[in-house]
């Protein structure tokens, strides 16, 4: 079976789209033009995910889809039907206790203005899960999709390094 919206000529139709965000089921009638970033910010008012460039350059809009990091500004929201989306709002424990990586950002001075930080944390979590943390060079390479205008890169690398080392210790 093929799912299609009305063909062009007529105004293109809305597409019913269901997915989860931070574990909660959501369902919208979406215009296929809407980006996942805009749906998160404008419809769900989850404004932790930031819009820096809206062109895939800066990484401020990074979220996870089925556990993998993507830029939500270049993700048409209709493409996430049936997927699990995780945003920065889904990272801390329900009682507000910060995730160890969030705590490490605080402890390592990994931010100044904080605008890039949600994206950095989402990207950093994925970088850790992927195992691209062998050396600081690896961390820098695999975090290069997240720009920081304030130049907090040294702290960001240190925060990820700290959590990578902690994880290694608990595994031994």
């Amino acid at each position: 079976m093929m799912k299609t919206s009305p063909t062009a000529g007529r105004p293109a139709g809305l597409v019913e789209t269901a997915f989860t965000v931070n574990g909660e089921q959501v369902r919208f009638e979406l215009d296929p033009r809407e980006s996942l970033l805009d749906v998160l910010r404008e419809r769900l008012v989850l404004t932790g995910t930031k819009k820096g460039c809206d062109q895939g350059h800066c990484g401020a809009c990074t979220v996870h889809i089925d556990g993998r990091r993507v830029v939500s500004c270049l993700t048409p929201a209709v493409q996430v039907a049936g997927r699990d989306v995780t945003t920065i709002e889904g990272v801390a424990a329900p009682d507000g206790t910060l995730h160890p990586l969030q705590q490490a950002f605080v402890d390592c001075d990994a931010l100044q203005c904080g605008y890039c930080t949600p994206g950095q944390v989402m990207s950093g979590l994925a970088c850790l899960a992927e195992g691209h943390t062998e050396t600081d060079g690896d961390i820098r390479e695999y975090m290069s999709g997240n720009l920081c205008r304030c130049g907090a890169y040294i702290g960001i690398t240190a925060a990820i390094r700290r959590v990578a080392d902690q994880t290694k210790q608990t595994e031994v």
């Binding site: 093929m2 799912k3 299609t4 919206s5 062009a8 293109a12 139709g13 209709v78």
Partner: peptide, 21 residues
């Protein structure tokens, strides 16, 4: 605005492409 078409197979995609505007 654009129509969003989701075929469920490669054959379906080819058909959709052939029939498309």
């Amino acid at each position: 605005s654009f129509a969003y078409v989701v075929p469920d197979s490669v054959a379906g995609a080819v058909d959709a492409l052939a029939a498309a505007e």
